[in-house]
């Protein structure tokens, strides 16, 4: 099986979010970048597990500049075989999806695994856009994936529950929690990642949207502390003051 996993970098989850240039640019000063958790914990690990069970290869693809190389090496350390970086500055989902789809068209992948969204732009658009550009089936929010011959059995989150779905390969999915368990790279993985191929390809595509302005949510007012033996008082405040219940 030939598997492609889409990997994005994202600010570490503990990052303080701030903007410069009058709210037009994300302030990356002091920000550590990590592999986007949905890509790493679920999409990548499930890809590696399927390769271990059925044979094949796991290739990662990232759209971005050389700043992304450390997170790509991390994905290789966890167990991907090789990596592609499309050397372009991604501005929106459509542009990113087109660049990924054009690479995917030139190689015969059976499966493209993405995280359900990145934790910076929370777009959740690239996976289904890639599927449409390739005219492949798409499973959003997959929590389970087994492959048997040419058929994939999946579970996906849907209104109020989980749907069981059967699809023939090739397919694109977006990974949600449950698809796999996080793997910590071992020393051998980290050593071998250095010599695994990271191929850089040029790419050009148009973006259709852009951020005009970032802003931060208003600060919360002070917390009203209610004594622990006055539960009724809290419930009264929730009804009469906050009008929440």
């Amino acid at each position: 099986m030939k598997i492609l996993v889409c990997i994005s970098q994202a600010p570490d989850t503990t990052s303080r979010i701030a903007f410069t240039n009058e709210g037009k640019t994300f302030d990356s000063t002091g920000v550590q970048y990590i592999v986007n958790p949905y890509d790493e914990w679920y999409a990548l690990v499930r890809g590696i597990e399927l390769k271990e069970a059925h044979g094949g290869t796991v290739t990662t693809i990232t759209v971005g500049g050389a700043v992304c190389d450390p997170v790509i090496r991390k994905a290789l350390a966890i167990g991907a075989d090789d990596a592609i970086r499309v050397d372009a500055e991604p501005t929106d989902a459509m542009q990113t999806a087109e660049l990924i789809a054009s690479v995917a068209k030139s190689q015969a992948f059976d499966l493209i695994l993405c995280g359900k969204e990145t934790i910076d732009h929370n777009g959740s658009m690239v996976p289904a856009m890639v599927a449409e550009l390739l005219d492949w089936p798409f499973i959003a929010l997959a929590t389970h994936l087994e492959v048997e011959g040419n058929t994939a059995s999946l579970k996906r989150e849907s209104a109020g529950g989980t749907e069981h779905v059967k699809v023939n390969l090739p397919l694109v999915l977006s990974a949600s929690k449950g698809l796999a368990e996080q793997r910590i790279p071992n020393m051998r993985g980290i050593m071998s990642a250095r010599s695994k191929p990271l191929n850089i390809e040029p790419g050009e595509a148009a973006a259709l949207s852009s951020v005009r302005q970032f802003s931060l949510p208003p600060e919360k007012g002070a917390c009203k502390i209610i004594p622990a033996d006055q539960a009724e008082e809290l419930i009264r405040l929730l009804r009469e003051e906050a009008k929440a219940i």
């Binding site: 459509m94 658009m125 289904a128 449409e132 798409f138 499973i139 959003a140 259709l208 949207s209």
Partner: peptide, 24 residues
């Protein structure tokens, strides 16, 4: 809605309509 439909149908439709999409 930005539920499973917004994640599966919306982006596919944006490609077909050559439309810019803003999610969420």
């Amino acid at each position: 809605s930005h539920d499973h439909t917004g994640r599966a149908i919306g982006p596919r439709l944006a490609v077909r309509l050559q439309a810019g999409m803003v999610s969420g």
